[in-house]
């Protein structure tokens, strides 16, 4: 056989193997985390782990509920802040804005996505923490140290803005021009067209965009670790401290090898995080793929 053809065959095999490796990586992560969290899964009942509220590793009590609830609170607040902002700007940038405004704004929003989370965390500490402590909390006549659900939610909201805006703009672009024209020709104003035609048509895609943002917020670690307060109790208000799962994992890496089951518990926390994020990303990606198919 020709030398060139042999080279081609070899390269093909190698590339195929790397591709399979890439797909297998997802399974490898899940299986690896599962194997390492088995010791705690076999010694404790699942409901004890998931719904237990006591976190005392030294006494062998590992209740994840405070951390799971902390994650939900922080993520919920960030979504509540980010979604209206993102939708309004995505509609503006894709429907109203002049081409030049869009060309100016989108790279800046990309830049926002490129800022490391440690910088967001630091910014949260020097700007948002005092804002919550000295302005927002006194306004509602409550006391807050500033390291709270609200602070973490605000910073997370900014961090997920680029993801949601980007995907939403892509989705708006897939709405056929003919549909808009049909609506406009019936006498609808531009806003009515957007409200009743564009948004309705784009709704599944918008939901997918929000879910992608949601899963980003779920796994965000460093910024949250610095500003959420890290108290292992279920938060009962916006001004309480929270201790989300990723912060728990990152905060205890030093001690975990000396206490029995501790490392296993932390890797179980990673597994829970991975499972939630997997469900969210797979669901939103399936929606987006469906939309992409429709326009082709």
């Amino acid at each position: 056989m020709n030398k060139r053809l042999i080279k081609d065959k070899l390269a093909s095999r190698l590339m195929f193997m790397l591709t399979v490796f890439m797909i297998a990586l997802i399974f490898a992560i899940v299986i690896g985390l599962y194997m390492k969290s088995r010791p705690i899964l076999v010694t404790k009942a699942p409901h004890e782990l998931l719904f237990g509220t006591k976190w005392r590793p030294l006494k062998g009590e590992f209740g994840f509920l405070p951390f799971i609830m902390g994650t939900f609170w922080v993520t919920g607040v960030s979504i509540a802040i980010a979604v209206p902002l993102c939708l309004l700007s995505a509609i503006y940038l894709s429907e109203y804005a002049h081409k030049r405004v869009r060309a100016f704004s989108l790279p800046l929003i990309d830049l926002l996505a490129g800022i490391p989370s440690i910088i967001y965390g630091m910014w949260g500490v020097i700007v948002i923490v005092p804002l919550t402590r000295d302005v927002i909390a006194p306004f509602f006549r409550v006391f807050s140290s500033g390291y709270s659900v609200l602070t973490a939610g605000i910073v997370l909201a900014i961090m997920i803005v680029p993801v949601i805006i980007h995907v939403s703009i892509e989705v708006f672009r897939t709405v056929p021009v003919e549909l808009r024209e049909a609506s406009l020709s019936l006498g609808a104003t531009k806003w009515q067209t957007i409200k009743h035609v564009v948004i309705r048509k784009a709704l599944p895609g918008i939901i997918a965009a929000v879910v992608l943002g949601l899963s980003r917020a779920f796994g965000e670690t460093m910024a949250v670790l610095m500003i959420a307060g890290n108290v292992a109790r279920i938060p009962s208000s916006l001004f309480d401290a929270a201790y989300p799962l990723p912060a728990l994992i990152a905060n205890n890496y030093g001690e975990m090898l000396s206490v029995p089951l501790y490392d296993s518990a932390l890797l179980l926390a990673s597994l829970i995080l991975m499972a939630i994020v997997l469900v969210f990303t797979i669901a939103s990606r399936l929606i987006l793929i469906k939309i992409e198919r429709r326009i082709q």
Partner: peptide
């Protein structure tokens, strides 16, 4: 796409 969504702390743990 799925791997892109996996949080970096999970990569750290893995």
């Amino acid at each position: 796409d799925v791997l892109w969504g996996v949080p970096s702390i999970v990569y750290g743990a893995f």
